[in-house]
Simulated assay, not measured.
Amino acid sequence: MESLLLGRFPEPRGISNGCRNWGGDFPKDRFPIAEALWFRGRSISKGYHAKCCPTNVPERNQFQGGRQRKWNANAASGQPLESKPDDYDSNGVIGSVKSAVDAFYRFSRPHTVIGTALSIVSVSLLAVEKMTDFSPIFFSGVLEAVVAALFMNIYIVGLNQLSDIDIDKVNKPYLPLASGEYSVGTAALIVSTFSILSFVVGWIVGSWPLFWALFLSFVLGTAYSINLPMLRWKRSAVVAAMCILAVRAVIVQLAFFLHIQTHVFGRPAVFTRPLIFATAFMSFFSVVIALFKDIPDIEGDRTFGIRSFTVRLGQKRVFWICIALLEMAYAVAILFGSFSSNLWCKATTVIGHLILGLLLWVRAGSLDFGSKAAITSFYMFIWQLFYAEYLLIPLVR
Rank of each mutant, 00 (worst) to 15 (best):
V318N: 11
F319I: 06
W320N: 09
I321Q: 09
I321V: 15
I323L: 06
I323Y: 04
A324E: 06
A324R: 06
A324I: 09
A324P: 02
A324K: 06
A324L: 14
L325V: 07
L325R: 04
L326N: 07
E327I: 04
E327K: 03
E327D: 05
M328E: 10
M328P: 00
A329C: 09
Y330A: 00
Y330V: 00
Y330P: 00
A331I: 12
A331S: 10
V332P: 02
V332M: 11
A333R: 07
A333K: 04
A333C: 08
A333I: 04
A333N: 05
I334T: 04
I334R: 04
I334G: 00
I334L: 08
F336A: 08
S338G: 01
S340K: 00
S340I: 01
S341E: 12
S341W: 12
S341L: 10
N342Y: 07
N342C: 02
N342M: 05
L343H: 01
W344T: 11
W344V: 10
C345L: 00
C345T: 09
C345G: 00
A347C: 01
A347K: 02
T349R: 00
T349F: 01
V350R: 00
V350I: 05
V350C: 07
V350Q: 04
I351W: 05
G352F: 03
G352S: 09
H353N: 11
H353K: 03
H353G: 01
L354S: 12
L354K: 03
I355G: 04
L356R: 01
L356K: 03
L356C: 08
L358T: 10
W361A: 14
V362K: 15
R363Y: 12
R363T: 09
R363M: 13
A364H: 03
A364E: 08
G365Y: 11
G365A: 14
G365Q: 15
G365E: 13
S366T: 15
L367T: 05
L367S: 11
K372P: 04
K372N: 14
K372L: 11
K372W: 08
